[in-house]
Design a protein around this nucleic acid. Structure first.
Lengths: 259, 259
DNA sequence: CGGGCCGCTTGATGATGATCAAGTCCGCAG
DNA sequence: CTGCGGACTTGATCATCATCAAGCGGCCCG
């Protein structure tokens, strides 16, 4: 399945690949292939050995974890994102199941090739370390969010983050089913409904997948977003530069936890 | 503050440093210094810029996160562990506060030097990526633990993990105050007391900081430990080899979340 | 067009965990 | 020795969240 040049360029532009030598990049790409998957496809199961680094080019995907017949969503991925990087680096088994939510185009790159490329190209190895650092910090934010905030606070912050990522207008549309959102935010679907109901008092109007934030200031007072938890508020300086890497990691949807 | 040779060797033996070229290692060490801190010292505050990579040589330390006047412990670190690596790699502000729990010896290495070393020594950059991968996976485990299990289940699994890390005997001793454990496990001290009381029915006997597991099989049936959450059960093969890296990361105390 | 499935909501109830308030034990300083 | 403070426990109460059950509404398929 040959890639279109447009897609190759989008991949090359990713922070993970942009600093690699051309030789390195070519070596990675020749072993890689693009594949289309329908919605609801399981790409990788928890516990499986990981043979490929995945890059979501188009569509929507989800990482989930399981225990004792319970399931939780750890991250929702948007294009263009890499995932399962940590397992690839360590050549270890997957800790999360990866599933497509929408029909998706996914680039798969040989894990073996990634590990070889790191050893031979220090710039690429540095980029991998930076990507992983961003992922790591995304997860730290997730844990803080989970342990320190209550359900409606998590929802309120999710909405504010989604608002900026959708351009800052007063109304945003949920990118997936509410049940997935509930799982991502660590609650049941029933409770998400009630959390939305609570937020009505704070100027949040829900109409199917369309959510309007009528009084941002009021919602903000409830949500108390924090630059050390919510990655959408970056420190004034450094919107460009180094921090961009982490920004990328976390921008991919609320709690950035690829990999 | 010059380091003893013993300590230098312990650092050199860490997975993070063992594959680095001698030049690289020397360059890192010459910019570094060892310092002793009393218990309860704040090494780094949430939101501060990070100038050093920290290595806990002796003692006990804690990483915590804050929001809205609430505080939670994200990890408890034992020697020998590095922490704050991700922030160093990205030259970013700290997402967590680092505090000593006991009197501790801590090696501080210039962050600038770390970033330079990565660029110049691919083997070191790879080691950093591997270390970060282990940390990342430790956090994934933490999130699953937190979202999928109830309080007593978390405690039960903590005890089983602590048991193996203390040699597998029937009785273990808690390495720090129970209040810290409560925070680490995501509950209040009061609730931890009650969780311990619940576990009495499962053969757990508490006497101050000494905890005895009288009927491991019974406790195990409650805890349902899982290789994809609890890092202390490694897949039969590969106890040596690649997986050792992740093992190291997660062994450092329940939920390995340095950095 | 009708029927059924599925996602979502709502209500009622129950479990789990947080908070508030004593009270005990222990180490330490006066 | 005495008194104080801090860690831990215990009980009572309350808030939060999960579960169970039912009902609505859209959508696809027969």
């Amino acid at each position: 399945m040959p890639m279109r040049n447009v897609d190759i360029e989008r991949v090359r532009a990713l922070p993970l690949f942009s600093t690699a030598a051309s030789r390195t990049f070519d070596a990675l790409m020749t072993g890689g292939f693009l594949q289309k998957f329908p919605a609801g496809t399981t790409l990788l199961m928890e516990g499986d050995p990981v043979d490929f680094l995945y890059v979501l080019i188009e569509g929507l995907a989800e990482l989930q974890g399981t225990w004792n017949d319970k399931e939780t969503t750890l991250a929702v991925l948007r294009p263009v994102s890499t995932f399962i990087l940590a397992a690839v680096v360590l050549d270890a088994e997957a800790l999360m199941t990866a599933r497509t939510i929408d029909r998706s185009d996914i680039l798969m790159i040989s894990g073996e090739a990634v590990r070889r490329a790191m050893k031979e190209d220090a710039a690429f190895a540095v980029a991998v370390a930076e990507e992983l650092s961003g992922c790591y910090r995304g997860l730290v934010r997730t844990v803080k969010n989970q342990k320190l905030r209550g359900a409606s606070e998590r929802l309120a912050n999710y909405l504010l983050a989604e608002q900026v990522s959708q351009g800052g207008g007063p109304t945003l549309s949920l990118p997936h089913e509410k049940r997935v959102l509930a799982s991502l935010l660590g609650m049941t679907p029933e409770n998400l409904s009630r959390a939305f109901a609570n937020l009505a008092d704070y100027g949040v109007l829900v109409n199917g997948p369309e959510v309007s934030i009528l009084r941002p200031a009021v919602l903000d007072r409830l949500a108390k977003p924090d630059r050390l938890i919510d990655s959408h508020l970056q420190p004034s300086s450094a919107r460009i530069g180094m921090a961009a890497r982490e920004c990328h990691a976390s921008a991919a949807g609320k709690a950035a936890a690829y990999n």
